[in-house]
Design a protein around this nucleic acid. Structure first.
Lengths: 123, 123
DNA sequence: GGTAAATATAACCATTGACTTATATTCAGT
DNA sequence: ACTGAATATAAGTCAATGGTTATATTTACC
């Protein structure tokens, strides 16, 4: 649940939001974010490093360019962490919602399983 | 969306999780958390201050005791922030789920409205 | 009003974090 | 091999953070 630490910084949150729209090369990120926050290319690069270390992003090299993309896994953990608090703003789930929530969870698990293990996780 | 900064600290996250189980006096929090992290009463008190400032908790005084409780509002904002990323791990919502999601959102809005404004937000 | 309990604040210190500028690395093209 | 583009790393600075001990504040109780 270490991802929270990385998300403590507004610059990094904004980088992620930018990447939510699809992968971007480091240069484009440095451009957009640097402008928006008034910080230099190295500064952005260092933020990208933190995001990499927390595995909030993945990188793909193409020539001299590095394309960053969101890695959703740690964000899902945050989503899970929030579960304990959802009772505060979600009235108790009724049966139907519970059913659907369970369906979602199973689909998610199915997605996590190795392909060889895809034992027909039918809806 | 400043709540993220406060949640960057594991001690504060743990305090919130503790409070998810119901309100607690500062002493009990200092006891539990202090033990768990090996930090002093003032240290915990300072964390509580940060949580107060970010409005992640509310306080209620009873005599010399101060009862802390979760204030869910900022956590909901985080929940909303995550929305932009849910598409990564949730397959596109089908019509039924969308309907239910909308219902939840409306119930939530109804809850936010001032009591005088409660215009029978029936399910 | 004095004392003790519960909690917060003050003052200080060490560490971490987020910048900066300068430089190294890596690859593409000539 | 040389050059330039894209990116990362190094080194240094400064402010913010999280801890400590000591003390102030508030309230209950005698």
């Amino acid at each position: 649940m270490n991802a929270f630490d990385a998300l403590g910084d507004p610059v990094r949150r904004e980088i992620l939001r930018l990447l939510a729209g699809g992968e971007r090369p480091a240069g484009a990120i440095a451009q957009t974010i640097g402008e928006r926050f008034g910080i230099s290319q190295p500064a952005v690069s260092q933020h990208l490093k933190v995001l990499r270390e927390q595995e909030l992003v993945t990188v793909r090299s193409v020539g001299t360019r590095r394309f960053y993309a969101v890695n959703p896994a740690p964000l899902r953990e945050i989503d899970d962490w929030l579960m304990a608090f959802r009772t505060f703003w979600e009235p108790a789930l009724d049966a139907l919602e519970t059913e659907i929530a369970r369906g979602k969870r199973q689909r998610r698990l199915a997605q996590d399983a190795s392909p060889s293990d895809e034992r027909k996780a039918s809806a």
